[in-house]
Amino acid sequence: MTVEPAATRLRHQVPLAVWLVVVWILLWGTWSWANLLSGLVVALAVLVLLPLPHVVGGVRVRPAPLLAFLGHFVVDLFASGAEVAWQTVRPQGVSRTAIVQVQLRVDSDLLLTMVAEAISLVPGSLVLDLDREHRVMTLHLLPVRDLDDVERKRAHVLVVEGRLARAFGSAADVAALEGDREGVVAP
């Protein structure tokens, strides 16, 4: 056994352990030394008893695209939240909804999951299915005004995918976005 696999394993598990401790403290609602130590014990138990496989390819974080994604995401949260709230309280109720499929361009499991989560977290859109093999996401959209609105919302999913790929994706993921822009990938 070499030192490198242990160092690699430690490099992947330390951030996860820190995250588990933070979540533990947040679940308790207050910071204390007891919560910190018990969170550390729980995190170590989870990592030892329930080992997770490593994510192939890892994560590349690019700060500028990440900030751009987060800024747009917060704006989407508020704008969509206000639109859905208005649809629920207005006298006419929800006028129309739609179920659409979107052909995604990235092929990374991690990025596909991040896109699905980002889309589902925004009010008015819910991921119903994600076909991993064909990279097709099926969404329920609320509200939609007309077919142009449906197409705008479908295109917005691709915009979110592009932002996430630029923030976290590999060079191949970014190249897939550029290839689609040139018309190489069919819709």
Score class of each variant (00 low, 15 high):
Ala165Asp: 08
Ala171His: 10
Val75Ile: 15
Thr138Pro: 03
Val3His: 04
Thr8Gln: 13
Val157Asn: 03
Val144Glu: 09
Phe168Ser: 04
Ala7Val: 14
Asp149Leu: 00
Ala64Arg: 07
Ser38Met: 12
Trp86Glu: 07
Asp76Cys: 06
Val61Ala: 13
Asp173Glu: 07
Arg145Glu: 15
Leu130Thr: 02
Gln13Cys: 06
Leu70Cys: 11
Thr30Phe: 05
Val61Asp: 09
Leu158His: 07
Arg90Val: 04
Gly162Ala: 15
Val160His: 04
Pro63Tyr: 01
Glu182Ser: 11
Pro91Gln: 07
Gly124Arg: 00
Asp173Lys: 01
Val55Asp: 15
Val3Arg: 08
Phe69His: 04
Val174Gln: 05
Leu147His: 02
Gly124Ile: 02
Gly183Ser: 09
His134Ala: 15
Leu49Met: 12
Gly169Leu: 05
Ala43Val: 09
Glu133Trp: 02
Arg96Lys: 12
Thr88Met: 13
Ala64Asp: 08
Leu130Glu: 06
Ala6Met: 13
His12Ser: 14
Ala82Val: 14
Leu44Ala: 15
Pro5Thr: 08
Ala34Gly: 12
Asp173Gly: 05
Phe73Val: 04
Ser170Leu: 09
Val157Gly: 01
Ala172Val: 07
Gly58Phe: 06
Trp33Arg: 04
Gly71Asp: 09
Ser120Ile: 01
Pro91Leu: 12
Asp148Gln: 04
Leu67Trp: 08
Leu66Cys: 09
Arg62Met: 10
Ala6Asp: 11
Ala167Gln: 03
Val184Leu: 14
Leu70Thr: 15
Val115Ala: 06
Leu121Cys: 11
Leu10Phe: 11
Leu40Pro: 00
Ala85Gly: 12
Gln103Ile: 05
Trp31Gln: 12
Val89Gln: 09
Ala186Met: 09
Gln103Phe: 05
Glu83Cys: 05
Ile99Gly: 04
Ala172Thr: 12
Val59Ser: 06
Arg90Gly: 06
Arg90Ser: 12
Leu128Arg: 10
Arg62Thr: 11
Arg152Asn: 03
